[in-house]
Design a protein around this nucleic acid. Sequence first.
DNA 1: TTGAAAAACGACATTTGTGTCGTTTATAAT
DNA 2: ATTATAAACGACACAAATGTCGTTTTTCAA
Lengths: 205, 205
Amino acid sequence: MAPKVSDEYKTKKKIELLQAAKRVFITKGYTRATMQDVMDEAGVSRGALYAYFDNLEHLYLELLQFEDQQDAQFFTPIAGETSWQQITKWLYKQQSEIEKIEQTLSQANSEFFLSLKDQQKQQSYPYITTRYEKMVDVLTAFFAHGTTIGEFKPQLPPEAIARYFISVIDGLMLDTAHLGPEKTKVSEQMEALLFSLRAMLRPTQ
Amino acid sequence: MAPKVSDEYKTKKKIELLQAAKRVFITKGYTRATMQDVMDEAGVSRGALYAYFDNLEHLYLELLQFEDQQDAQFFTPIAGETSWQQITKWLYKQQSEIEKIEQTLSQANSEFFLSLKDQQKQQSYPYITTRYEKMVDVLTAFFAHGTTIGEFKPQLPPEAIARYFISVIDGLMLDTAHLGPEKTKVSEQMEALLFSLRAMLRPTQ
DNA sequence: TTGAAAAACGACATTTGTGTCGTTTATAAT
DNA sequence: ATTATAAACGACACAAATGTCGTTTTTCAA
């Protein structure tokens, strides 16, 4: 049902497949999802799917990159908003994401990352490492900027705060993924994180 | 190679199998491990292993409980040591555990928990939920105790601090599991956690 | 209108793991 | 010793996925 077509067509098709895959991963997570599931969900044949993606791992990796690229630039300083306000806002966004974890890729993400234990694979997917480091960089730069404009008086190296920040979010996600948002008391923990950050950054109001 | 034997024998054998399983899970994680692997590692037949454990999930659950039961009682107040000192000590223990994550069940644990997404399964394994809640309780009680003896002046509800505490550790574990301890700068983050706790608990020296 | 290119199809061979079950074998009690 | 018991064995039938590949179908260009 489709021959010699434009690049545009192929891109479109690919995105379509990625979206079907996304739905699958959200409901089944990464480990329990199969290529078969994606075919079924997308209503496409075995051959078609494999023409676009070699295997589940590659498929997930592409989905990850595709999603990331939507998010991007969240921590570029915004005029008319203090850095502290920005953080708070971002945190609320994270919070609702975690609370709706059932409709999110978070669980699948964790599973995917864990599944790459192999050093071998780690090397073949520098993107994974890069992803983390980029996030560290973005946050570090953000904190540093807030400091230079005199908004923060950090009590710890900005980079340490950045990493710590990421850990808390990831941990909360992990725990919530298998216990549910009621059990982990997401909002309460966000408060605690906010409290910690205030202590670390000493925002000058 | 073994018939009609004492209960003691069976218990021994079971522990032996659990230990083999542990080795497997440490090197392969939960998702990639198979019953076959355990048989091979234990040098035992299919039939034998299945006589003790119905399937991988049950096997892991038993291993988990077995391991937990070794740990137990870590946060009972110790005479001659301040609560703060105890926390610090425990944190160092966690740190070295995370740094040696390759030789630990942490990764497998995360994988196992995530694999139980199903609400169905969640209910059939109340132990999983209990486990988390017990940890919360233990920490909460510990913080509360430190407060009543006037050692802490908590700025947040003890329970909130407890949950938060757990999240940070879990997050650090997760990240370290797939990036390695160098990338996540474990000790630096432990410092940050200590800093946070100090801000939250206000230990009176 | 036609035909070459290639997208999509789906049957198939393979692989890998599972859980069962009839058989063998070692133990402990008599 | 003998024997009933049940632990351990390992072949087997089954299931679920995977990746391949020859075939069919559709589109685009000439």
